[in-house]
Design a protein around this nucleic acid. Structure first.
Length: 638
RNA sequence: GGCGAUGUAGCUCAGUUGGUCAGAGCAUGCGGCUCAUAUCCGCAGUGUCCGGGGUUCAAAUCCCUGCAUCGCCA
């Protein structure tokens, strides 16, 4: 069996956030699941780097598109290993092999007559550098610039997608799970009830140069679709690559619902036109809302995946994402929900189960797995075998169907079954009398067996925890302990195995400093008019406050209020601050100030500022916040 | 505005083809155990199944309509 999983290539106009992390972790989970069944796997992710939004973002930062995309792309590439995600390839649409494939496929489809040249007429806003459909306009004006767009004509190349509509409908009908969950298949079918238009696939170089040139017309570059979607085959070395032959078309694409149409309609049509077999499944997931609201930069509620990992632990974070979201539907992300899940599912159910079983093994058998007569085992064991089998069956079915939350629910049902079995068997009673020693041995054997199974099943979602469990069961964490075939064998932890000292897998998270029953944030009306919404300690810790020594200071030319400071906080930083009206450069040099060190860089009067100086707002203007006595440059604050 | 989806206990959500379907987990209350991370086990509630119409012997489940939220509209 081969299994090829992909995430979308992420557009580099923003830093990676929770949504990116979720999609990519899902891909990692299903890939690890496939490795449990001996599948050969290939895992692709990467970045989408062409287009006008990238050019604009680069301009804003005052750098070339190349420098800009290198910078953002690296943020994505470096993030994944931090989340225990290791793709086989990180593709960039600026990679030369990818660009060559795009060129080749365009040439081929053009030669076959499915790309044609045509005039396009539309309402164009020069401010936005884009066309608007009439219904997008507000009272005939651009919703952003409030200016009246102009009617312009532009010639462009079009992909004859309409030709493949009938084929695609047939394919969707003969492959009911081509797009899943079903709701998204229905959505695509609904869309296909209307005649499909053709797809504009180019931009004139007069408007956009940051793209892949069309092989049949040097005056144009490719516009998004062929450039981006073809990454799924170019990464494998289409058309002749060994990987391509091995893994295509066993492809599982994973996308969020906002890009359903390109992946569910454009991409299959493109593949068909190029004579490439269509991919196997498109798996569509919903959105994470943050504290009931949409995640957006302007709301300031962007969740930083690394921050979550640092605060709650990587496996707990991965578990929460996979367990909390019904794959396909939207879900809410909140730290309080995560704490609840960690305490209830991980600390209480799993962690405590693990702890009680291991501690009993230590207490009653001195940490060595007891000998067991098979007959005694049959008679006095907990009879978990049938449950174990049902659990593995449901787990495998759900994983296979991308119902990842259900796969975890199945494992936790088994965990609950084990906790109940312990109460009924009451090993602490059996331990009191020598007469029930044999029964005690059988019970402990059953329980260790159960833990062994659980550690295998949680491997895709919580690989580190799975390995820790193996270690503490005296087993080899380097082995393929999670092979599904072996897990079905319901194997015991061998008698005589010595168990290391037990550990807490997941400590409970207690509400920090809050007395029990403390009410949540009071309604805004009860607070002072100037207070901001309640922030958690984690919110505060997100801000990197540091002491910096001012090395030099000079006015910014033509700016009345701005000073450009060079500061030392362990490294050199340039900071632009609006305090020129109240502080002279001389008054600052050599002093220690407090800055926000992880603020997004901004360009002020042509100078990039890599931080912000902290000042108090007074009626006489800004007043510097200074340490009471000298400290090492770069010292953190709390 | 058009297309589509979602709206079920305090919270997050299951509910296949209309008939023990009014459920689960968490949170809450009470009881039990003591191996365990103040953990575990048992019991107990609470619901105009978004509102309004309709079809039917029977609707959370089908139809119409309204409201709210989300996605897409090259």
């Amino acid at each position: 069996m081969t299994f090829y999983v992909s995430t979308p290539i992420y557009y580099v106009n923003a830093r990676p956030h929770l949504g990116h992390a979720y999609t990519t972790i899902v891909a990692d989970v299903v890939r690890r699941f496939q490795s449990m069944r001996d599948s050969q796997t290939y895992f692709l992710t990467g970045t989408d780097e062409h287009g006008d939004k990238v050019v604009q973002a680069a301009q804003k930062q005052g750098v070339s598109p190349r420098v800009y995309v290198d910078q953002i792309s690296r943020l994505f590439r470096d993030l994944w290993p931090e989340l225990n995600v290791r793709p086989d390839r990180f593709i960039r649409t600026t990679d030369s092999d990818h660009m060559a494939v795009v060129t080749e496929v365009l040439r081929k489809i053009h030669a076959a007559g499915d790309i044609y040249f045509s005039e396009y007429e539309g309402l164009y806003c020069f401010g936005c550098e884009r066309f608007y459909a009439e219904r997008e306009l507000q009272e005939g004006r651009c919703p952003i610039h409030e200016s009246e767009p102009e009617l312009i004509r532009e010639s462009n190349y079009f992909f004859r997608m309409s030709r493949y509509q009938g084929w695609l409908i047939d394919h969707l009908q003969s492959h009911p799970d081509f797009i899943r969950p079903e709701r998204y298949r229905n959505e695509v079918l609904a869309f296909l009830r209307e005649p499909l238009g053709d797809l504009c696939i180019s931009r004139p170089k007069t408007r956009l140069t940051w793209g892949i040139p069309l092989p049949f017309d040097e005056a144009y570059v490719t516009y998004v679709w062929f450039d981006a979607l073809l990454n799924y085959v170019s990464a494998l070395g289409y058309p002749d690559g060994e990987l391509f032959h091995r893994f295509w078309p066993a492809a599982q694409h994973i996308v969020a619902k906002d890009i359903l149409k390109p992946h569910g309609i454009y991409w299959p049509c493109m593949l068909k036109a190029a004579g490439i077999p269509v991919y196997r499944h498109l798996n569509v997931h919903g959105y994470w809302n943050i504290e009931q609201r949409k995640m957006s930069k302007s709301l300031g509620n962007v969740i930083e995946p690394l921050e979550m990992r640092n605060v709650y632990g990587l496996d707990a974070f991965r578990y929460f994402l996979i367990r909390e979201m019904t794959f396909g539907l939207d879900a809410n992300f909140s730290e309080s929900a995560m704490v609840q899940r960690i305490n209830a599912d991980l600390a209480n159910d799993l962690g405590n189960l693990f702890s009680r079983v291991l501690s009993m093994t230590h207490k009653y058998f001195d940490g060595a797995v007891p000998e067991l007569d098979p007959e005694v085992g049959r008679q006095y064991g907990l009879g978990l075998g049938p449950d174990a089998r049902r659990t593995v069956d449901e787990y495998e079915r759900a994983m296979e169907a991308f119902e990842l939350h259900k796969a975890l629910a199945a494992v936790w049902e088994f965990i609950g079954r084990m906790n109940r079995a312990i109460d009924i068997a009451a090993p602490w009673e059996l331990a009191k009398k020598p007469a029930t020693r044999k029964q005690l041995e059988a019970v402990i054997h059953s329980l260790l067996k159960g833990l062994r199974l659980i550690s295998g099943l949680i491997y895709p979602v919580m690989p580190d925890t799975a390995a820790r469990m193996q270690t503490h069961l005296g087993l080899d964490p380097e082995a393929l302990y999670y092979a599904l075939r072996d897990l079905r064998l319901w194997k015991p932890v061998p008698s005589g195995t010595r168990l290391p000292k037990t550990v807490m897998l997941f400590p409970r998270i207690e509400a920090a400093g809050e007395p029990a029953g403390a009410s949540p944030a009071p309604p805004a009306a009860e607070r002072g008019p100037e207070t901001k919404p309640e922030a958690t300690l984690e919110d505060f810790q997100r801000i990197d406050l540091r002491v910096a020594t001012v090395l030099s200071a000079e006015p910014v030319p033509k700016a009345k209020k701005l000073l450009k400071l060079e500061v030392d906080l362990g490294e050199r930083r340039t900071i632009v601050s609006g305090i020129a009206a109240h502080y002279t450069p001389e008054a600052l040099v050599g002093r220690q100030v407090v800055i926000i060190a992880n603020l997004r860089p901004v360009k002020l009067m042509g100078v990039v500022s890599q931080g912000m100086l902290l000042t108090a707002e007074s009626e006489d203007g800004p007043v510097l916040i200074l340490p009471e006595k000298p400290v090492a440059p770069g010292s953190g604050l709390r």
